[in-house]
Nucleic acid binder design. Structure first.
Lengths: 210, 210
DNA sequence: CAGCATCCGCTTTGATACTG
DNA sequence: CAGTATCAAAGCGGATGCTG
């Protein structure tokens, strides 16, 4: 990308992560932790292969991501954020908060990927009783499986993958799970729309579900 | 700009403010409050006139800025942020924090505008004794004149224009003022480099100046 | 002069095909 | 799987011209 060349922190930041697709690559890596080229491609519908390659090189060059060759049994190149890239979390969080209202309506014409719900869950789900014992909820959302764990400080960690031991299991369409946990939904209403829940209903009250 | 069309808050936000120059226009309006087309042009070195026109229309369309025709004696169109645009402040602040290290070095080849120092001053200058009486410092930085006022909560307001009544006056090159107030500089050192200060030296200790 | 609109050449992006 | 190559389309920057 052509740089602005301004002696200004905002412009300098945009010189590094302001190009098209750059921040979405950061988003993907923030969700997935560390992943392959094709995982990124799948999480970035619409990106051209040469674009992805070029952006990965640029971001690596500027120290935002790193590329490492995984040993067997993975035996492929993996990309992940550097600490410098992780430091973009507040930017991503604020952008997500600002953009939230824009995707609130129906928007059936927008492309969607199941794992994308992980970010809003991290941003919006809060543990209303952090003093109580930590809980861990397994979620099967569409084709993705992930884990919501309270962290004792009122926030929750949402990660890809199934937990070793969980206190409850939520299963259903990703956007329905999201609506249940962030939009102040009720369990019975979500269940009537096709969500399955296996566990103590009171558990979900920790997350503001009525 | 071509949109991503993702059902994701980050992507949706970038669909609105991710185009080249868009966030820098927001930055300018955040600094200047409300200003004319030519003020923006001057604060965005390198932008083409049609680009500025197009972006202003786009941002207005998406509700980030508004255009109003000022009554005499101004008698010209003014642009300013809507509440929705003001809500981008956290994004700008985080981006600035992340980009700060990128402009820390010498960077003599980057273009600079005096009023740009207002944003880092707002972000970084803190009142270490907010319980003491409020103070107000006038600053003549290059060709710009602005005001730093404590707000009683540990933060300061930095605005364009001279205050009615000030407790001290700082005068000197903008980047020197910035270094003094944010980089933990000492007053005597700054003065040896050409900064003038008129007021009680202890006053500046409120801002961490030694 | 403020506030655009138009035209032109260059750069970036996107779609597709192809390769180790 | 992880890219490279190619080419058309769109976006962008700079210059210039127009309108009050």
């Amino acid at each position: 990308m052509r740089t602005y060349g301004h002696q200004c922190a905002i412009a300098a930041a945009l010189d590094v992560i302001g190009a098209r697709w750059s921040l979405l690559i950061v988003r993907e890596l923030m969700i997935r932790g560390s992943c392959r080229y094709t995982d990124l491609q799948c999480g970035l519908p619409g990106i051209a292969t040469n674009m992805l390659t070029e952006r990965l090189k640029d971001l690596q060059q500027s120290g935002v991501i790193e590329r490492l060759v995984a040993p067997p049994p993975v035996a492929t190149a993996l990309f992940r954020l550097t600490p410098r890239g992780e430091a973009l979390k507040p930017v991503i969080a604020d952008l997500g908060r600002w953009g939230g209202p824009l995707v609130a309506g129906d928007n059936a014409d927008r492309v969607f990927r199941d794992h994308w719900v992980i970010l809003p869950l991290q941003l919006y789900v809060r543990d209303t009783h952090p003093e109580q014992p930590a809980i861990c909820v397994a979620v099967y959302a569409g084709t993705e499986r992930f884990t919501i764990a309270t962290q004792g400080d009122g926030t929750v960690a949402v990660t890809l993958g199934t937990p070793n031991k969980s206190d409850a299991l939520i299963q259903g369409p990703p956007l329905l799970v999201l609506a249940l946990l962030t939009a102040g939904g009720t369990l019975t209403r979500a269940q009537s729309k096709g969500l399955q829940y296996d566990g103590d209903p009171d558990l979900l009250k920790r997350f503001g579900v009525r």
